[in-house]
Amino acid sequence: MAGRRRWSTEEILDAAAELLRTSDADSFSVRKLAAALGTDSSSLYRHFRSKTELLRAVADRILLAAMDDYSPEGDWKQRITSLALHVREAFGQQPQLASVWGRHASSGTGSRLVMEEVLQALSASGLPDEDIPARYHRIAVLLAALITSEARVSTVTPEEYEQGMELFRVAVLGADPERFPALSRFAREVRPLGVDRRAAFEEILAAQLAHIEDAVHPD
């Protein structure tokens, strides 16, 4: 009887990414992946020592895809902004994988390429070397939080979105003005989280970069 097919590491990652598109990191398991490939879990553990290691490798491929389409141009702020938007766009195409990245991070080539570019850009900003690691960490935390949060919103179904919008309208427009005077005052201008997220993303990132620039060139 012929033996079971031997799957390559890339084929396993392809199948894992496809499985994650229709589920999430919580329900994902090596057993389910093995079943989808028609093999047993032990064969997959020859490639990855744990579920977490496998998930990190899947997320890292998103970062690699982002870096393949990225070319550093402009000053240090433009470089970081462009990189951030590339990473955002890459995870926007596969939002289920953003939560994997936010939870498990990555230590692969894609992650190292992103780290290298941010650190190089910060070095070009004029910051002293001793300040760069802390500034890098703040940018990394900010991007992971924003991209992961945005991905959660983008994965809701149209029915869930409409239900959420109706609840938002009831909660905001129907707020008791005596108990919530400020909310009642701005109710018609306050927008739900799913609206105009790219502009919010860019403004929040720009504020962080402006804070760095102020540290380099204090008044």
Rank of each mutant, 00 (worst) to 15 (best):
E89M: 04
L64E: 13
A25F: 12
A17T: 00
S149K: 10
E202Q: 11
D219N: 13
L113P: 00
L205D: 03
A35K: 15
E162T: 12
V153Y: 04
T52I: 10
S43L: 08
V58T: 03
F28D: 10
S41N: 00
A182R: 10
H211M: 14
L44A: 06
A25N: 08
M1K: 10
A57T: 08
L143Q: 02
K51Y: 15
S29F: 14
A215T: 11
A35L: 14
R21T: 07
V87C: 08
L146T: 03
D68H: 06
T157P: 00
D14K: 06
R56N: 00
A105F: 01
L83Q: 07
S41D: 07
T9I: 09
A124S: 14
D60P: 07
R21E: 15
L205R: 09
E150Q: 15
Q163G: 05
Q120T: 09
R88M: 08
Y70Q: 11
A66V: 03
E178S: 06
E89Q: 07
Q96M: 13
R49S: 12
A182M: 12
W76M: 14
D129H: 00
T52Y: 07
V58F: 05
Q94V: 12
I12H: 03
H47Q: 12
S50D: 06
R138F: 11
R185N: 04
D40M: 07
D24T: 15
L173H: 07
E150C: 05
H217S: 11
L122V: 11
A199N: 13
M165N: 08
S50R: 13
W7A: 02
L20H: 05
E189C: 00
I62R: 03
P192A: 01
D196L: 05
S42I: 12
D219Y: 05
H217Q: 14
R197W: 08
L127V: 07
E178I: 07
A200W: 04
L127R: 10
F180N: 05
F168N: 04
G194A: 09
L64A: 04
R103K: 13
R21V: 06
A121S: 07
V118T: 08
A17G: 01
S123Y: 06
L13T: 04
F91L: 04
V141I: 12
V114K: 01
R191L: 14
E203D: 12
A15K: 12
E117V: 09
A105Y: 01
E18R: 09
L205H: 04
D69G: 00
R5H: 10
T9R: 15
I147S: 01
A90S: 11
H47P: 09
T9F: 05
Q163W: 03
A187H: 03
Y45C: 02
K77F: 03
A175E: 09
F91R: 02
L127M: 14
